[in-house]
């Protein structure tokens, strides 16, 4: 029996864990001592089982509603397919299933039902909101302490947990129904935009974005000032309504806790 160098022994062991080929199994089996009351097969299988169970549990924890939507059989099929397609290359299980939406969008039979990939994507958005960086918030008090003459030049930055999501199907409504243990409506095309973030109680929160608010948020992302937002609203409502409407939006964002404290640049 040849003694293998460490690197080659480790490669054979990893190959065994990620691969079901009997040749791969017999290759590592040759390096295992046969001793005691249990066979080498039983011994190795403890590791293989642990590997698969751990990754499956990770996906179950991250994607609970997707699991309810698919049912046990399809979920198991998805897990096996994903584990084989994307063995973990990250030290953290937190990121193991990051590519699950991509896998579901490209792999039959899941890709024939795009809402499945969207559900997975929505759940990953929630995870990002949950543990994104902390940051001090821009508040009503800070706004009140800003001299009124500086307001037009205010620019805003979003909290690191804030995400904009676009879905083509009724994915979020389906997720909500499952969360409330109700049967979701049949999948249908229903384009919509969503805002997700972590609120002041550190809970993940989301709401749909009407077209006007979606446009305003995109303008902020591109560096627009408060005056720019007011100008945009002037195209949509009367002159008397524009400024109060802009202020309403701003106060809503402050109360949601999606804007952060920052030094304002005077133009």
């Amino acid at each position: 029996m040849d003694k293998l160098p460490l690197a080659s022994l480790q490669q054979k062991m990893i190959n065994y864990l990620v691969n079901d080929d009997p040749n791969v199994t017999s290759t590592i089996m040759k390096q295992i001592k046969d001793h005691g009351r249990i066979t080498r097969d039983v011994r190795l299988n403890i590791y293989k089982n642990a590997y698969q169970v751990r990754l499956k549990e990770t996906i179950e924890n991250d994607h609970e509603m997707l699991g309810f939507f698919l049912g046990d059989d399809l979920f198991d099929q998805m897990v096996l397919g994903y584990i084989n397609a994307y063995p973990s290359d990250n030290t953290s299980l937190r990121h193991f299933a990051d590519k699950l939406p991509l896998f579901l969008a490209n792999t039959p039979p899941f890709k024939d039902h795009p809402i499945i990939s969207e559900l997975a994507h929505f759940e990953r958005f929630l995870m990002v909101a949950f543990d994104a960086a902390d940051a001090a918030l821009f508040t009503r008090d800070l706004l009140a302490n800003t001299p009124p003459e500086q307001w037009p030049d205010l620019v805003f930055r979003f909290h690191p947990s804030v995400q904009l999501a676009h879905f083509h199907y009724n994915s979020v409504e389906t997720w909500q129904a499952l969360k409330q243990e109700q049967a979701p409506e049949p999948a249908k095309e229903q384009p919509s935009d969503w805002l997700l973030w972590r609120n002041k109680e550190r809970l993940t929160q989301f709401r749909s974005l009407p077209a006007q608010e979606y446009d305003l948020i995109n303008m902020i992302l591109q560096g627009a000032s408060f005056a720019d937002l007011c100008d945009f609203l002037l195209q949509e409502v009367s002159e008397e309504q524009a400024s109060p409407l802009a202020l309403d939006y701003l106060l809503k964002w402050l109360d949601d806790g999606i804007l952060i404290k920052q030094k304002f640049i005077q133009q």
């Binding site: 480790q10 490669q11 062991m13 990893i14 590791y47 590997y51 063995p87 290359d89």
Partner: peptide, 25 residues
Amino acid sequence: CWTGVNQTNSHDLLPLPYNEEALNH
């Protein structure tokens, strides 16, 4: 222990062979 090799992580605590090479490593 070791947990993975060649960019693949087992997320498990895998045993080493107990010999001189592994000890030095």
